[in-house]
Simulated assay, not measured.
Amino acid sequence: MKGWLITNAFLHTHKFTEIHLWLTEAAKKVGVELIVKTNAEVLVKLDSDFNTVKEVNSDDNPDFVLFWDKDVRLAQYLEMKGFRVFNSSKGIAVCDDKSLTHLYLQGAGIVMPKTIVAPMTFTNIGYNNLDFLSQIEKELSFPIVIKECFGSFGQQVYLVANKQELRTKTAEIGAKPMLFQEFIPSSKGKDLRLQVVGNQVVAAMYRYSEDGDFRANITNGGKMKPYEPNQKQIDLAIKCCKVLGLDFAGVDILFGKNMEPLVCEVNSNAHFKNIYDCTGINVADSILAYIIKRICIGCK
Rank of each mutant, 00 (worst) to 15 (best):
T17M: 13
T17C: 09
E18H: 14
E18Q: 14
E18P: 00
I19P: 00
I19R: 05
I19V: 11
H20G: 01
L21E: 14
L21N: 12
W22V: 00
L23P: 03
L23Q: 06
L23D: 03
L23K: 03
T24R: 14
T24L: 03
T24H: 03
T24N: 03
T24C: 10
E25A: 11
E25H: 09
E25T: 09
A27M: 03
A27W: 02
K28D: 15
K28E: 15
K28F: 09
K29I: 02
G31H: 07
G31R: 06
G31A: 05
G31S: 05
V32F: 02
V32R: 02
V32C: 04
E33T: 11
E33V: 10
L34G: 05
I35K: 11
V36K: 13
K37P: 04
K37W: 06
K37T: 03
T38G: 10
T38R: 10
T38Y: 10
T38K: 07
N39M: 05
N39V: 05
A40M: 13
A40T: 13
A40C: 14
E41G: 13
E41D: 12
V42I: 15
V42D: 03
L43H: 11
L43A: 14
L43F: 08
V44H: 07
V44W: 08
K45P: 01
K45D: 11
D47R: 06
D47M: 05
D49T: 13
F50L: 11
F50E: 06
N51P: 00
N51D: 15
N51A: 00
V53G: 03
V53E: 12
E55M: 03
V56C: 01
V56D: 02
V56K: 02
N57H: 07
S58Q: 03
S58H: 00
S58A: 07
D59E: 09
D60P: 01
N61H: 08
P62N: 13
P62Q: 12
P62K: 12
P62W: 10
D63E: 15
F64Y: 07
V65D: 05
V65Y: 04
V65T: 07
V65Q: 04
V65G: 06
L66F: 14
W68D: 05
D69E: 13
D69Q: 08
K70W: 09
K70D: 14
K70P: 03
D71S: 14
D71N: 15
V72G: 08
V72D: 12
V72A: 12
V72F: 13
R73D: 15
L74Q: 05
L74S: 07
Q76W: 07
Q76C: 01
Q76D: 09
Y77P: 00
L78K: 09
